[in-house]
Structures are given as C-alpha cells and as structure tokens.
Design a protein around this nucleic acid. Structure first.
Length: 797
DNA sequence: TGTATGGATATTTTT
DNA sequence: TATCCATACA
C-alpha cells in the first residue's frame, strides 16, 4: 500500500484513490479535508504519473493556499513548485497578466481595493450628478459587485433594469464605473474573475491552453463559490481529451453546513446541486471528526440539524466525550467581558493553558471593544483579527500609492491619493481643473500633470506639480536602473520627508505605531525580494503590488505568539482552538436583528445557524457559550433573550454555569463579590434578579474619561501595560500644548498680548508648529481660540 | 488649506 | 455610544 494512504480512514482513502471524473467530498468540520486534498495531489503525482504541471488547486485564502502548498511540498518533494496552488484571485491575475490584452486592457493593469473603488465611485457620482446624500457609494458598489458575481455586465444590467428609477441609476453608475476602471487600466476584485471568464469567452486559444494544461482541478471550500467562480471552474474542467471524451476531473471539497458567505455572493446551490451539474459525480462524506470532543460535536450536530436546506451528515469522533459544553448567563455585557477575561487569566495563572489556547469569538466586530478594554486592564496579551488590516492603514496606503504611481502610467487613483501627501499645496481645486483637462483631451491624469503649465487655471500650482512629476520621474528612473525596491521606499521616505509629515499631527504614540508599520512594510518588501532571489525570479514592483493587494489580515496571523485571539466567527472559519468562548448568544445579536427582520427570515436564519455551527466546531477541548440579560447597543441599554440557537440544544448536553465558574474564579474577588457563590445557576427560569445594572463598576476602564479629553488615546496594539498607556497619554497631552514656541518670525510669542480684528485683545498661551504654519492659541475675553497664524493676522501690542 | 462640528448611521467581508 | 462624512469657518 502506498505510504500516502497510511493513517487515513476508509472514506479518506477512497477520496484519495478516486481516479477520474467529478468528485464531491462533503467534508464536515475537522474531518481532515486538507489532509485528503494534499494526499490526493501527492498520490496523483506519485502513483498515477500525473505531471505536477497539470494540477491546479484553488482556495479562497492565501493562508489556505500557503498551508496546502507547504504540505504538498513535504509529500511530493521537488517538482511540487509547478503545481498551481493559489487563490481564485491570484490564479486569475496570473492568467490575465498573460492574456488580458486580447480584451482591451494592458497587461500591467492595477488592482483596485475597496478604498479605490469608493473613491472612483465618488467621481462617478459627481459626473452623473448623483447626490451622495441620497445614495451611498457603498450601496451602489455592492449592487455592482453582486452583478459581477452573477456575470452580469453593464449592458445586460441596463437591459434588465427596466423602468425602475433606482435600477436605472445603478445601471448608469455601473456603466460609468466600468468605463473609468478601464481608463485607469484597473480591475476591481470581482473583475479578476469576471474578466478571466470574458477572456476565455473571447480568446478560445487561451481557454484551450489552460484546459489542456489543467487536467486535474481541485477546489477547496466549494460551498463558498459564487456563480462566477462556478463558471470559471466549469469552463476549465470542460476539456475534451484526445479520445474525444470530457472527463471533468474536478474534485471539489466543501461543507454546505459551513456556507457563511451568502452576503458576498456565495451560492450554496453550487454545492447542493453538484450532482445535478455532474450526474456521474461520485460523492464521499467525511464525517469522522479529529478535532473536537464528543460533547462539542453533540452540540454542533443538534444546532445544525435545525436547518432544512442541507445534505444530511452527522459528525462523530473517537475522541471521547470530554468536558461538557458550558452555558453562562450574565447580567450585562460588562460582566460577560470580565468573567471571560478573568477566567482566562486564572487558567493561565494556574498553568493549565497559555494565552494562545484561548479564542473569543463574536458575531460582530463591535463586540471586541469591551473585551479589549478588559484585556488591557489585566495586562493580558491579545490580538484582534479583522477590523482595519495592515494594508488599509493610512501610512501604508500612502506609501503603496507612491509605489503604484511609479509602477503605472495611467492609474489616477493612486496619484490623487498622494499628490498632496505630504502637503505640497496642490489642492482640490487644482485637481478638479486637471480632471476637466483630462476629460477634454482624453489623456491620462499623469499626462495632464506633465503638461500642467498648459492647463487653464492651474498656472499657480504648475511649479509645484512639476516638482511632483520630477520626483516621480526620478523614482522611475531608479526603478528602471534596477534599484532594489527597499531602496526605492527609502528614497520615497527621504524625498517626501514622510516621517516628519507624520509627526506633525497625531499623538506621539500613534506616530510611533505608524513608523513601526512603515518598518514592517519595508521588511515585507525585503522579504519579497529575498524570496525572489531564492527562486531565481525577477522581483518586480508589479508582482509585489499584486501579492499584497490580494492579502488579508488573517493570512498574516503569527501563530507562535502567545496571545489571546479575538475575532468574528467569520474570521475563525478554518481555524481551531483548545478553548473557545462564544459570546453574545442573544437574540438580536446572534442571530443578528438584520436576519431576524429580513424579508426571507428562514433563509437568513439558516445562514446564521451555519455560522453558529462553524463557531461551535472551532473548539477542541472546551466550549463556553454565554449571553447577557441586557447589553449596551448603539448607545442605549437593550434587554435581550438567549439565542434561539441555545434553545435548540437539549438541556442535558449543557452544563449551565453554576459552581464550577465560581470555584474557578474564587481568587478573583471582583467577580466573587458581585456574583455571589451561586452565580448563574438559574439560566433557564428567568427568576433571579440581578438588580439594576451598575453604571460604572470598578472594572471600568480607567482611561476612558481621560482619553476623551486628551484627543482620544486608543491602545490598538496588544500587550500594552496600563502604566505605559498612562505615561504615553500624559506625554501626548503635554507635548501638544506648549512645544515648538520658537517662532520669532511671527512678531509675537507665548505670553504676549495681541489684537485680532474680530476678537479684540487677548493673550497668547501657546504656539505650535504646523506643516508650514504656526498654530496659535490665544485667550480672548470671549474665550480661548486656536487659529493659524497666517489667517489670524494677529498684531502684538 | 485645514479643522471643528453636527448629522446621519450602525452585520458578517476569504480577495 | 462611536464613527464616518459633508459642510462651515479660522
């Protein structure tokens, strides 16, 4: 027997051994599907003489792709590099970089992220005279995105829009938006898939080339594919071999119970109807779970069994029952946060677990805040996944915009982002005029910049623009000369004095963090260049930019750090943790009120239930679910009831709070005092009275008050001690007021009496240096005013 | 050109 | 409650 089959169960073996033809693997959570996929690939190569070159494996995340690549490499050894293991999007980029010129784009196209899309849509609104008050860019963009998911192009959208006013407006936006993307030689994320299909439609040779090449296609997380991705896969799989037979060597792996991305266009019918698309398909169910205890799986099975639209399946394990799943009820969200964080602290203190053994999962990002406060307060290292990702940070986007500007000749979005960052005195009015010129001449924005001197109305800014253009040109020359990318970045920082610019506003704390981020970007660039050296590839700016626009937060998660992880359930998909706290199990939170009040509640609730199933099955050893009697929601206190998903779990499967909680926390006086020893024993009868929620407890984040007055200190990084926080905050407020008073050229200084045209006589209390002007604080009789020196026209008396 | 401020607005988000 | 945006002033 091949050693590739060792240690696999019968079902898994069957999946690995399956020869030709369509295969659907229904892989329950934790059933070892990555193992099956990687072993299948290895088996094809080792035992069936399939060339690595003719295998493609498609995933949704870089993380999944990376993992699979590593594991296949270990199994296959040299030669595994020629297997395409990548995300849908990167695969499409790769294809398009080679062939997109046949559908009218240049092969050096740029990829627009959400911010770029929004900015572009803003311009579309302006040209079409759409009032952004009545219509939001985001709404239109999501309409367009859904259209693209369904492969509806602007022309067809218009056709189908009919007489409906809104639809017609969307159609107009779609058309204009697409036109502008093309002018910028840009594609958005959805286009990457859409345009690949368009390419295959138009350019049959290209399609035939890839069909011939990819004899074996494997797709991970198949339940999350949308219609466009479905089409793409099926086009590729529709290859007729030399005997005139279409084999459909298409192996898809997925779990309909874990389909949680409907809102992003995922079409659950793709997996439910796989056998309809391919009647000859073989279906294999992987139901043995290697991750969780029996107790956890019992709960998961119970919850998901309430869904109607699903393929029947029941997870089981040889792991043994383990500890029962616990359910807790807390008087309010604050108590929930304290209890969870306190318990983690206690468990680590006792040496039972390390911080990284714990994950706190919630339905909405907003719920992370409270837990974060408590973690900071107790000085527990943590990491919040999601929210603002690294590449969305201002300083990173700015620098990337410089790189993009250098890389592309026609992408205007990037230029507009940085043309006045740091401030160069090129304002909105100037840009407006340049845009008009662009429109008139049919030239690109950059070309307009180059001939700024001839653009009507920008004479005054022309010199400044020229300086900007020569900066970019200089950088381009360096790039062409073969300078390393890391040196180019240094060059940019140097030439623009970017660090100084950052220092001008924001608290010192934030500035330090931003500089930290910039350093991280530089080391990422260096990493990229080094990795290219290893593989003998030419490091190009374009390739680097591709790589990072297609990366996400969770891809970057360092698994070695000992930190408590906090994330939404969506982000947790595919991950596992020894101990999971599933918090906020309340009607209105989870399932969210949006799904409860949706037009098609049953469908939406089923999706939420799948989400719940995903959350439960993340836990390996312990699962703690909790809910609150009342919670602060959008400003006011809301009463809430336990989630219907909790109702769906038979009582005997749950350990409902009780003694263990209070015993565990006996050294935590705060909790003990508040809850009493019998805290939480009465969840099901809502009898016990917890009294009025306390407005402020001793667990309240002590910085909160201060932070509001000192322009909002917010600890974003994990592991800050409270002392650090206080100190840096103090430093921040001090340096804000009195520094930089060396301003002799103003004709007055701190302590001088001055006269203002409108406010009369006052005393200067502070002067601080802005980008190119001084900010003067003056105490008038009518009150304290802050003003820019050049505007204030203050006269010393 | 920058900032202060009021008003609207508030799931989830692999790329 | 907090956050994001467009608009009004200095």
């Amino acid at each position: 027997m091949s050693e590739l089959l060792q240690g696999l169960n019968d079902r898994q073996k069957e999946a690995v051994l399956h020869d030709r033809g369509p295969l659907l693997i229904l892989a329950g959570a934790g059933s070892g599907k990555t193992r099956v996929l990687t072993h299948r690939i290895a088996y094809l190569i080792a035992e069936r003489d399939v060339s690595p070159y003719s295998i493609i494996a498609l995933t949704f995340t870089n993380k999944a792709a990376g993992e699979m690549k590593d594991r296949v490499a270990r199994l296959v050894g040299p030669g595994s590099e020629s297997i395409w293991v990548s995300t849908f999007h990167s695969s499409c980029v790769r294809i398009l970089r080679r062939f997109i010129d046949t559908i009218g784009y240049r092969t050096d196209f740029v990829i627009y992220d959400t911010d770029d899309q929004k900015a572009l849509m803003k311009e579309v609104f302006k040209t079409l005279g759409i009032d952004p008050k009545n219509t939001k860019e985001k709404t239109v963009l999501s309409v367009i995105s859904h259209a693209k998911d369904e492969l509806i192009d602007p022309a067809r959208f218009e056709l189908e829009a009919g007489p409906d006013k809104h639809q017609r407006m969307y159609a107009a936006c779609y058309k204009e938006y697409q036109k502008r993307l093309k002018e910028n030689n840009a594609l958005d994320f959805d286009d990457l898939i859409f345009k690949t299909i368009e390419l295959f439609d138009v350019n049959k040779e290209a399609l035939a080339y890839y069909q011939r090449r990819f004899q074996y296609i494997l797709v991970d997380e198949y339940q999350d594919t949308n219609s466009a991705q479905f089409m793409l896969i099926h086009m590729l799989a529709n290859h007729m071999n030399e005997n005139g037979i279409i084999e459909h060597n298409l192996c898809v792996v997925g779990d309909d119970d874990q389909s949680i991305y409907k809102f992003r266009g995922a079409n659950i019918r793709n997996i439910l109807d796989y056998e309809k698309s391919y009647p000859e398909a073989k279906v294999i169910r992987l139901e043995e779970n290697y991750r969780s205890t029996g107790s956890i799986l019992d709960v998961a099975n119970e919850v998901i069994s309430h869904n109607r639209e699903r393929k029947s399946k029941r997870l089981w394990t040889q792991n043994g029952a383990g500890e029962p799943v616990e359910l807790r009820c807390y008087p309010d969200d604050r108590e929930e946060q304290n209890a969870v964080v306190g318990e983690i602290a206690a468990a680590v203190r006792e040496g039972l677990y390390t911080y990284s053994d714990f994950a706190i999962l919630y339905r909405t990002n907003a719920q992370s805040r409270g837990f974060e406060d408590k973690l900071i307060f107790r000085n527990i290292p943590y990491k919040i996944i999601g929210g603002q990702s690294f590449y969305q940070r201002k300083e990173i986007k700015d620098l990337l915009a410089y790189l993009r500007t250098i890389a592309s000749g026609v992408d205007s979005m990037a230029i507009k982002r940085i043309i006045n960052v740091p401030k160069r005195g090129i304002g909105a009015a100037t840009i407006e005029k340049l845009m008009a010129y662009t429109e008139e001449r049919g030239c690109s924005f950059y070309e307009a910049l180059c001939s700024a001197a001839f653009v009507p109305g920008v004479e005054r800014a022309a010199a400044k623009i020229e300086r900007f253009v020569s900066l970019i040109e200089g950088l381009r020359t360096k790039l062409e000369k073969g300078f390393r990318l890391r040196d180019i970045i240094d060059e940019i920082l140097e030439a623009t004095q970017y660090i100084d610019y950052l220092g001008e506003d924001d608290e010192p704390d934030k500035v330090a963090e931003r500089i930290e981020n910039i350093n991280e970007l530089i080391s990422k660039i260096a990493d990229y260049e080094d990795s290219c050296e290893d593989t003998n590839e030419m490091p190009t700016l374009a390739a680097f930019l591709d790589e990072i626009t297609l990366v996400s937060d969770i891809d970057e998660m360092e698994s070695d750090a000992d930190k408590v992880l906090l994330m939404t359930i969506h982000s947790a998909k595919g991950l596992e943790f020894p101990n999971v706290y599933l918090v906020g199990m309340e009607e209105g939170v989870f399932p969210g009120y949006m799904s409860i009040n949706a037009d098609n509640p049953s469908e939406e609730i089923e999706e939420e239930r799948r989400l719940c199933y995903v959350a439960i099955t993340r836990a390996k050893e312990h699962l703690y679910m909790s809910y609150c009697r009342q919670r602060m929601l959008r400003g006011d206190i809301q009463m809430s009831r336990q989630s219907r998903f909790v109702d769906e779990i038979p009582r005997h499967l749950l350990k409902i709070s009780g003694s263990q909680l209070s015993r565990k926390l006996s050294d935590d006086e705060g909790l003990k005092r508040r809850f009493g020893s019998s805290y939480g024993e009465d969840e099901w009868g809502i009898t016990r009275d917890y009294g009025e929620p306390k407005k402020s407890t001793r667990w309240e984040n002590p910085y909160k008050k201060i932070s509001q007055t000192s322009t909002g200190y917010a600890a974003k990084t994990g592991g800050n001690t409270s002392l650090d926080a206080l100190q840096s905050m103090f430093a921040g407020s001090v340096s804000k007021g009195i520094s930089g008073a060396s301003s002799g050229d103003l004709g007055y200084g701190v302590g001088d009496k001055v006269r203002h045209v409108k406010f009369g006589v006052g005393t200067v209390t502070a002067i601080s240096k802005g980008s190119k002007d001084y900010e003067v604080t003056v105490e008038f009789e009518s009150g304290v005013k802050k003003m820019l020196a050049s505007f204030a026209k203050l006269v010393k008396i």
